[in-house]
Design a protein around this nucleic acid. Structure first.
Lengths: 346, 346
DNA sequence: GACAACAATAATAGCGCTACGATTCAAATG
DNA sequence: CATTTGAATCGTAGCGCTATTATTGTTGTC
């Protein structure tokens, strides 16, 4: 009952050597003013601004975003979860988003699922523990637990690179079945009637599957035959070459090939070269992605170009708008479309 | 003076609906125990563990990492700054790091500089404001301000993808000049004497420049002639094709080509195909990177394979060790080496 | 010249969590 | 049986910042 004896203060590890208080002292203002200056410079008088600014420079002050985020109940982080950054498509989107978000002083927290829904769920949980300003997921397919986690968050949830299914909140992307349809229609228009789709990892890559399905249906609707040759591993030129050989062996009358992406298409072109199959005379080849090499191939590859960077920019814009309080309707859907690049391979 | 009238409490926006205290209440323990359970489960009794675990599940509790980080004076974030994630090399490292760090429940905060030192400086500043557990930079070349920012931080600073210069703290990578040397020696060994290096963006990409310089020196030391043909833009197959045509026009006697990376080499191979230049008979081609298509080319590309994923894994291991208190000597240097993949293009 | 209106600044009370020391309680020891 | 030990748990005091209200000073108005 008489523990009035003040124990010596514990020594807690300090995180920072120089805090906002230090800046305030040097600038002869209150910490509040420094905080205000940092958040809304226009609300602070010119003279105060100058002294504070000088003090910050002199002390080399770096604000602690965790303290700030904790106090403000939201952070300057945006979480983005993609299947893999090794994939050029997602790398492009991540890169574009990063560039756009940089202007808002928002940081990207990256996670990759490797096409595993359970992994995604864990990543979403980790992401939420940062109280991010927004969370970006790839695709519309998520585990029930993931949906539950995201059902009632107050921040924008943006699903990218896929449209055409039930969305959690906003979605930015395009319809992959339409990509398949566009490829099929193009080949038919080029006079091809025996079409084959070369696919990789379609049991995991839902979007590749959608492109394939759209292709098959459109081909058949257009009066062409349509077959699929696939491989369980991830897309690569090597697998593309294998698939093309298989396709020509199984369907010697094939005259039009659509590939689940440009890596496959590149391998197919190499295989055609080796097998002395004339492209496009004997076989037309269409890819997807318009990757860096696609225009430089022999022959240059006809391909469908998605707008990976536009997806990233639009996502960033949505987040920015939300941050500025312009709360747009939820369940927003933005179709970024795609374009067919007609080159010599078809 | 008589402001003893307590004003009604302000209503601050709460960040979370369910906090650690809620979990503690439901589990009938103190918040401290919940915290302990989350950080060191083995220090909590089995029965308590179970009730807490159940309460967490029931409430769908997500810890607030910002509060945790603030209190613990360090966060579960690792900041990685690369020139670009669009670049397959860095994407590979980022991906490998992410996979390794995931096991430690560490999150990657990504930044890209687009080869701009000033941008890097800003990114480092932003990174530091997250009080990350470690910070990873690309290369050894940084602005003085960046060095100053990082000079006295208590966390590991890891520079990746380059060795051979003054390092801030630890460095993981390889010597790019040795890559150039290996390419030159290989071509000479194959009987080539008139060598050309095809380079892109070498005014910005220091490491490409180092490879080029190593190549030139080794070639000349080996009694070969060595020339450079370069382009200011970023590497791509298209530019590779242009550079090859230029090289053959300028140096018709060239019999060995080394490319600053496999994109360039791919374009070079395409150009050779179009120009009916026999590879390797008339012209040997060596790349750098061993990208996904390199083994599938016509002919398969001889290339030097850096270990991008090993760099990422080693960086993660360093960070992990530091987190576990095993403070290794600073200024650690890890040479991850590279390997020459001899294929048919040389 | 009294008062309102406004701009600029300051004081205060947390945000949710962790580190640290303190406390409790059971088992082990002399 | 008093004491020691150790494991398990708890209480407290911030971490560095922001949102909100409160306070000050400075104009403008009738």
């Amino acid at each position: 009952m008489e523990k009035i004896i003040r124990k010596p203060p514990r020594n807690r590890r300090k995180m920072q050597s120089v805090t906002m208080t230090d800046v305030a002292e040097l600038a002869n203002v209150s910490p509040s003013t420094v905080s205000l200056f940092l958040r809304k410079p226009e609300a602070v008088s010119a003279s105060a601004s100058q002294t504070i600014s000088r003090a910050i420079d002199k002390l080399n002050y770096v604000p602690n975003l965790m303290a700030g985020g904790l106090a403000a109940a939201s952070s300057r982080a945006v979480s983005i979860i993609v299947p893999s950054v090794r994939n050029a498509f997602f790398a492009e989107t991540v890169s574009a988003m990063q560039t756009a978000l940089k202007k808002q002083r928002l940081q990207l927290i990256l996670g990759h699922t490797e096409y595993d829904e359970h992994e995604e769920e864990e990543l979403v949980r980790m992401a939420l523990s940062w109280a991010p300003a927004a969370i970006v997921l790839t695709g519309l397919s998520h585990s029930p637990a993931t949906r539950r986690l995201l059902a009632n968050v107050a921040i924008p949830v943006i699903e990218i690179w896929e449209l055409g299914g039930p969305q959690i909140d906003s979605a930015i992307g395009f319809h992959h079945d339409q990509v398949g349809i566009a490829a099929a229609e193009h080949l038919i228009q080029q006079g091809r009637r025996n079409l084959v789709f070369l696919g990789a990892r379609m049991h995991q890559d839902r979007r590749a599957k959608q492109r394939c399905d759209g292709f098959l249906e459109a081909a058949r609707n257009g009066g062409a035959t349509a077959r699929v040759v696939e491989h369980p591993d991830a897309a690569s030129a090597e697998i593309g070459a294998m698939l093309l050989s298989d396709a020509l062996r199984l369907y010697p009358d094939a005259d039009g090939i659509s590939c689940s992406n440009d890596h496959i298409a590149l391998g197919a072109l190499f295989a055609c070269d080796r097998l002395k199959v004339a492209v496009p005379e004997r076989l037309a080849v269409v890819g997807f992605g318009d990757l860096s090499f696609s225009a430089a191939c022999n022959p240059p590859l006809t391909t469908i170009r998605p707008s990976g960077d536009l997806i990233g920019r639009e996502a960033a814009r949505l987040i920015e708008d939300h941050l500025n309080g312009e709360k747009p309707e939820r369940q927003l859907t933005i179709d970024t479309r795609f374009t067919l690049q007609h080159r010599r391979s078809s």
